[in-house]
């Protein structure tokens, strides 16, 4: 563990990550993330968003460069076992993109209690946290259900509950709204905005620029070259159609307006009344 600046929750310095076989997934990634930030990771498919989230969760480790979390350099050795590993796992939770990956326990209840139990939290506290997570997401009725009997939306909610029962300070979400119907998406956005506070950090990857606009206070745009091409406030980039088009975040295609079929870039603008 190296002694470093403790101001930021995460600090990435010239981070590279290559898949086995030397295929680059991330190149020269640099950023600092502080408490209270709600960060959206956006970028085209294959730009490295999911890989970056796994690095932030200490599941993968940089090929070169360094990644610091809570002032600690993340490495396989440190996160293998011991009190620092337990402390890190208690503070950081990742919700995987595919809920079937995340839901490996026989029932929803066992899924939600899994994390706190592995991290040595006492029985009464585990039960209290698990109940709280189920109530927060309004899924108490699913408690005894096996995961294979859940719908896609229910699986997403249980995945999130299974991480919330850790009461993490940092919540990492990989494409949280993918596969959710509009009602469930709205619920999730409401929940995330309620969950956030000045001590917590949210980092989520998404393709949905509406969600970025509604939730994020910061946007990190990953390019096709697996590096960061923009980092700043969402409003700086979301109205720049050329930038969005250049980075495959919006698309120009034919579509219909009543009887007229024509082409132009689709922006994320969605009219609504207050």
């Amino acid at each position: 563990m190296s002694s470093v600046d403790n101001t930021f929750i995460y600090s990435a310095k010239n981070l590279d990550y290559d898949y086995p076989g030397g295929i680059a997934a991330l190149k020269e990634i640099c950023f600092d993330i502080g408490a209270g930030e709600l960060v959206a990771l956006v970028g085209a498919n294959g730009s490295g968003k999911s890989t970056l989230l796994k690095l932030l969760d200490g599941l993968l480790f940089p090929t070169s460069g360094e990644l610091l979390a809570f002032g600690m350099k993340l490495s396989e050795k440190i996160l293998e076992t011991g009190s620092r590993a337990v402390d890190f796992r208690r503070r950081v939770g990742l919700v995987f993109q595919d809920p079937d990956v995340q839901l490996f326990s026989p029932t929803v209840w066992e899924e939600v209690t899994f994390g706190p139990l592995q991290l040595g939290i006492c029985r009464e506290e585990v039960i209290s946290r698990a109940n709280e997570a189920l109530e927060l997401l309004n899924i108490v009725n699913l408690r005894e259900r096996p995961p294979y009997l859940l719908s896609g939306g229910e699986k997403k909610k249980v995945s999130l509950a299974s991480v919330l029962s850790l009461r993490p300070q940092v919540l990492l979400l990989d494409e949280p709204t993918t596969g959710l119907d509009p009602w469930s998406q709205g619920n999730l956005i409401d929940f995330l905005l309620q969950w956030a506070d000045k001590d917590k950090v949210l980092v989520f990857s998404t393709q949905d620029l509406d969600v970025v606009e509604e939730v994020a206070t910061r946007i990190i745009v990953m390019g096709a070259g697996h590096g960061i091409v923009a980092d700043g406030k969402p409003e700086e980039f979301l109205s720049d159609s050329d930038f969005l088009l250049r980075n495959n975040l919006v698309h120009e295609h034919s579509h219909r307006h009543k009887d007229l079929v024509h082409r132009h870039p689709h922006l994320h603008e969605r009219s609504h009344e207050h």
Binding site: L59, R89, L94, Q102, F104, Q118, L119
Partner: peptide
Amino acid sequence: EVYLAMLSRGY
């Protein structure tokens, strides 16, 4: 992936 998901929650 399941193994990573287990590690992530303290396995």
